[in-house]
Deep mutational scan, measured.
Amino acid sequence: HNGKLCKLKGIAPLQLGKCNITGWLLGNPECDSLLPARSWSYIVETPNSENGACYPGDLIDYEELREQLSSVSSLERFEIFPKESSWPNHTFNGVTVSCSHRGKSSFYRNLLWLTKKGDSYPKLTNSYVNNKGKEVLVLWGVHHPSSSDEQQSLYSNGNAYVSVASSNYNRRFTPEIAARPKVRDQHGRMNYYWTLLEPGDTIIFEATGNLIAPWYAFALSRGFESGIITSNASMHECNTKCQTPQGAINSNLPFQNIHPVTIGECPKYVRSTKLRMVTGLRNIPSIQYRGLFGAIAGFIEGGWTGMIDGWYGYHHQNEQGSGYAADQKSTQNAINGITNKVNSVIEKMNTQFTAVGKEFNNLEKRMENLNKKVDDGFLDIWTYNAELLVLLENERTLDFHDLNVKNLYEKVKSQLKNNAKEIGNGCFEFYHKCDNECMESVRNGTYDYPKYSEESKLNREKIDGVKLESMGVYQILAIYSTVASSLVLLVSLGAISFWMCSNGSLQCRICI
């Protein structure tokens, strides 16, 4: 991952900044910058967002509201009850120091605090018919004063009620008058409520006091790749198909172990950190130390980045220098085999997901714990399936590479015959000098055995068991695999060879 928040398929997220979902939807004055928000790819909250409900109280069923919003990608904020005409018999300019803005008392931008007009609070009834052709999110509140005197001074009615009804919602609220500790300079409380109004449905408000009335509502448009994440990451000019709280993932790998919460087309989250597919040879310690064997393909974004291909070729060293050249036929066979294998694994496992966190309130801790156990169970199954699949494929890959290298080895052996000696570690020792032209003939299969047989015969008789390297004779190393990324691999195959001279070296080696 890149540690950044990015656009998702070209669409920017909605960053709530210092506000949370509650503050944004109710219209906390400190969240005025969010009022123009219309569309987004996903919503970003920060872990310690401080601006929620400015007048103390709870947004009821907040967790369910977050779940609903996680599939919303755009909205239209509109005046559901026009301020100047909807409440002619009531005062609608209630403000509070708890919702101060720029040093002055204020109130929510989407709600109206209705109080008595003169000395009376006549029963009010108002309704709205949803003609938007889509779901409408309606929010309101109920004020709970701290004393009967406060109730009387604001609403005149000691036994007030609030009723809200639609086809799918029907509740009646009565204020709970009680002494409470002071929070944000208030002994009173406000509880906030919401409902989704279906197209064509009607919502009716009736009250004799204590109503925090809707002013603006939201017509919602769903987008199934949307979601809500909690993150401290910063926004950058970048684009992605998959976003996590820790950063964007741009990967076609089937798995990731970065974060379980994802938005967009994302690899499946697994616990494993070692889900690797081999593309090189079986481990040979001396070669492995030099980083030549054991190439791997990573299938977990965050564990290993991208696929690494092994390729086969020849390396030689003689009086004229040293050089490398790919054996294109065996390399292409290996590439085709690995590509098919990788595609097979991805096809089997690479279903892209959006995974969002589930919200539970403080009273639902047991449910949250149960949900976590269920999620953990599914996660263990996914991890096991992934590891088992790759384990089985790896064994076949190792066998496949062994065969490829063996074929190259036999190709060289059949040409050199007794003009060189096998020394048991995949290397041959020449009994004759071999210049670049000679080396090329070994690589392309045109090695002239009779041409060098007499010199080889004489050297075999002279050496008589002495280690060949100390006599200045020449080696050919018969097994060799270097490691390159897919891009470098293609470039390498396009070149005939490249040279690395070893000044004054008397050794001649050709490596497979």
Rank of each mutant, 00 (worst) to 15 (best):
A233Q: 10
H236K: 08
E237G: 13
C242E: 03
Q243R: 06
Q243I: 08
P245R: 02
I249Y: 12
F255Q: 07
F255V: 08
K268T: 12
K268R: 15
Y269M: 12
Y269I: 09
R276F: 02
T279W: 11
G280F: 04
L281Y: 05
R282S: 08
R282L: 07
P285Q: 04
F293G: 05
A295K: 09
G298P: 07
G303D: 14
G306D: 08
I308C: 06
D309N: 13
G310V: 02
Y314G: 03
E319F: 06
Q320I: 03
Q332P: 04
N340H: 13
K341R: 15
V342L: 15
V342P: 06
V345Y: 15
M349C: 03
T354D: 01
T354L: 11
T354Q: 11
A355Q: 14
G357I: 08
K358P: 06
E359I: 14
L363H: 06
L363W: 08
M367P: 03
N371A: 07
K372H: 04
D375L: 01
L379R: 09
L379G: 06
L379F: 13
W382S: 04
Y384P: 09
Y384K: 04
N385M: 08
L391Q: 07
E393C: 04
T397K: 03
H401D: 08
L408W: 07
Y409N: 05
V412Q: 06
K413L: 02
K413Y: 10
K421E: 13
G424A: 05
E429H: 03
E429C: 00
C434W: 09
E437G: 10
V442Q: 05
Y447T: 07
Y447E: 05
K451P: 02
K451N: 09
Y452S: 05
R460V: 08
I463T: 03
G465Y: 08
G465I: 14
E469C: 03
S470A: 07
V473W: 12
Q475L: 05
A478S: 14
T482N: 07
V483K: 00
S485D: 15
L493I: 03
L493K: 00
L493Q: 06
M500W: 08
S502P: 00
Q507W: 05
I512N: 04
I512L: 15
